[in-house]
Every structure is written in structure tokens, then in C-alpha cells.
Design a binder for these strands. Structure first.
Lengths: 205, 205
DNA sequence: GTTGTGACTAAAATTATATATGGTCACTCT
DNA sequence: AGAGTGACCATATATAATTTTAGTCACAAC
């Protein structure tokens, strides 16, 4: 039932192999349907018509499979966020969309694939590499928006940009991180709007 | 082991009675030492030299006792926060201290009385009245600081004060709420400074 | 009427036991 | 050499048996 706490998700065997993809596909389906805990490695093996042992030629552990699936989820969320941000052309609106879509994208996963969302919670709780990477990439996205806003004259330029980025990221985090977001469901409607407005006020030149 | 989810913490019997105080005293000691789950009502009864049944003349349930203890903890934290805020005389510094002391006061409880902190987490998780009241009172304190800052000319006056208060409260919450704070231990050093600076920038007239 | 309790029960927690699962390895078959 | 597996073991998980515990109530003493 529990997902133990490892930091990295090592794979092994041939990186690009049809069977690896089959495993990932089967895992996505099973994890999404029955959850990580209720899915056994033998289930996955049976689903693709091989023995359990063969799975371990491609993945070092069950968790490594979980991390792979989780990594995809987070990438999907990120894609949604980037799409929303890209729709806007001015940095202030981009920032608003970053806040808004972070919440909506995570909530979409939550309601469409509860079980996968639970894996994302584990990833956040136990700080899997996938979760750290996701955090990092969103932080970079934020920094890009800030940079652009400074160049366009929309945002102030006095405060060191690292400091600004860190602070804003701290504001965003409770609604970005799946583990934290679940404790903020009561505020998902209003928080993105209020917080991005506050942040934009703090950025005004 | 689990603390069930009730909203209110009803008491019964004489409100001001020596035995009630004895119960609270014994509960504070036992809960703090062995934790809420590992303390039985009989333990408390034995500690004060009465039968278990007599405890129920004063409290409607074990949880009601837990809520009483939790309520005290939160009041203690609040006192710390108010003291820190009162030490400053200008609203901006008051706000900085609100952020800083919210974290330090909670962390103090966490390291000095882990078991009581766990009760505070339950209170936050299950939204006991004590937790709601605490939230509400800090929110009021925040609003007072904002009001004062607007009158003194330290803070801008365009944005509706309710909106400002709500937004800032949302920024503070992850570090105020014991349940959320535990997921932010990595940031307790820097977050208060960064966040209060950001908030102050957003408040600049 | 107030103070106080032993005896009781339904539900929860603990322990004991059985079963299932993650993971490895020597091995076979192409 | 690469693809693939059955048999195996230590640990985790589920299940059943047992004990604790929260909470009530009728009743006693004052």
C-alpha cells in the first residue's frame, strides 16, 4: 500500500524497447484504475503477457514504474499550464494564467484520475525526482515571465529577480504542489485570482 | 488512535468547577507526554483520583477534552504572535513580525511539545471550532494592521481592504496553519522574510 | 440535588496468523 | 548474447481472534 521513499527512479535494460512501452501503458491503465497500491507487478506482467521477472529487466522496482507514470502526469499538467500561459501575450496576464491554470490543471487530474493524483501526492510527499523536476521547471517558467515583464516595462526592476521569483514561487507553491493543493480545495476558486492580483501589485513599477 | 471529525466541542456540567480544571490539567500533561491517542479517559480519571464516568459529567467526549487543550495551545501561539506584533510600532514592521512570529511560535510548539502539535494538526485537518476561531482571530489581527497602515499612510488605499486582507491571509496561511506548516518546514527560514517583503511591496502606496 | 461509581456494550485498537507481493537468480531456449 | 521464466525468500499486507477503550446508565451516598 505504501510507496517507500526513494529519491531517484532508476530504469534498466534497453531504454527504447517495445516491452518497456507496453509496461508503461499497462501501468498507466492499472494504476489509474485500481491505484498504485492495489496493482501488483504480476498484474502488469499478466496484462502484457510476460512473466513478472521480465518486468524487472526494464524497471528496477515497482516504484520506478510509478515514478515514470507520475512523471508523465506532471508533464501533462505542465503542458496545460504552458499552453494557458502562452495564450496570453503580456506578462501580467501570463502570470495570472500561471496561477489560474496551475490550479485548474491539477484539479482536472484530481477529478479525472483520482488514483493518479494520489501518486502525484506521494511524489510530492517523498520528493521524488519527478516532483523536483516539475517544481524546477515551473520555477523556470515563472522566472521567464518575470524576465519578460521586466524587459517590457510591466514589472519593477529594483528587487533582485531571484528574490522576486523565490517569493512568488512560495506564494504559488501551495496551489501547485498536489500534496499542498489538496489542503486548499476550499480556496481553489478565489485564491488564484486574489494571489495573482496581490503579486502583480507587488510587481508594479 | 484517530480523532473523529466533529465540528463543535461541547462541554457539560458546571462550567467553573475544580474537577474540570483538574481534568484539563491532567489531560494537558498526559496528551503532551503520551499523545492524544495513547491516553485513555481512564488514565485521566486515575490521574485525578475519580472514576472514568465522572469525567463525562464535565466533558461530552474525549475529543471535547482534546479540543479544550488544543484551544489553549492555539491561544498561546496567538499570544506570542500578538506580543511580537505589538513590539513594533509601525504597520510595515508589524506585518513582518506577524509573518515571522507565526512561524516561530508554531515551530516552538512543534519542538517543545510534539504531541500537542499533533493535536493542533488534527484540529486544522478536521476544522475544529478551536482552529476556526484561531484562524479568524489572526485574520482580524491582520486586518487591524492593514487598517492602521492605511491610516498612517504606510499602505496604499485603492484596493478594497477585504480583498487585501483575504489575499494576504492566503499568503500567510501555509505558515500559520499547523497542518500546512509541517509541509513547509524546508522554507521556514526564508519564507517569512521573502513573503512579507513581497506583501509589503504589494501594499506600497 | 449534587457528587460519584461499577457494570455494561458497541466500536476500536491490538495482537496473532495466514496470505500475497516485491524482488532476485539460476536457468532454459532461441 | 539476448529473450524470457519458474522457483524461491524475506517482507508486506490482509484477515481473523482478542483485548481495550469510549461512552452510557442505573443506582448509591451524602
Amino acid at each position: 500500500m505504501n510507496i517507500p521513499n526513494e529519491t531517484l527512479a532508476p530504469t534498466r535494460g534497453p531504454i527504447d524497447h517495445d516491452v518497456r512501452n507496453q509496461i508503461v501503458a499497462a501501468a498507466t491503465e492499472h494504476f489509474s484504475h485500481y491505484g498504485y497500491g492495489k496493482t501488483t507487478v504480476s498484474d502488469l506482467a499478466k496484462a502484457i503477457g510476460f512473466s513478472k521477472a521480465y518486468i524487472y529487466k526494464f524497471f528496477e522496482s515497482k516504484q520506478a514504474i510509478g515514478e515514470m507514470i507520475c512523471s508523465r502526469c506532471l508533464h501533462d499538467i505542465e503542458t496545460d499550464i504552458r499552453a494557458a500561459v502562452d495564450e496570453a501575450d503580456r506578462p501580467p496576464e501570463k502570470l495570472r494564467r500561471l496561477f489560474k491554470s496551475s490550479v485548474t490543471a491539477s484539479l482536472r487530474l484530481f477529478s479525472s484520475d483520482r488514483k493518479l493524483y494520489e501518486i502525484a501526492i506521494s511524489a510530492a510527499t517523498e520528493q521524488w525526482q519527478a516532483a523536483r523536476d516539475y517544481e524546477f521547471r515551473i520555477k523556470a517558467l515563472l522566472q521567464d515571465i518575470l524576465q519578460e515583464g521586466r524587459q517590457s516595462g510591466d514589472f519593477e526592476r529594483k528587487t533582485p529577480i531571484d528574490e522576486t521569483a523565490t517569493a512568488i514561487y512560495l506564494v504559488l507553491r501551495p496551489y501547485l504542489n498536489p500534496l499542498l493543493l489538496q489542503h486548499n480545495f476550499d480556496h481553489t476558486d478565489e485564491a488564484p485570482t486574489h494571489l495573482s492580483s496581490l503579486v502583480l501589485r507587488s510587481l508594479s513599477p
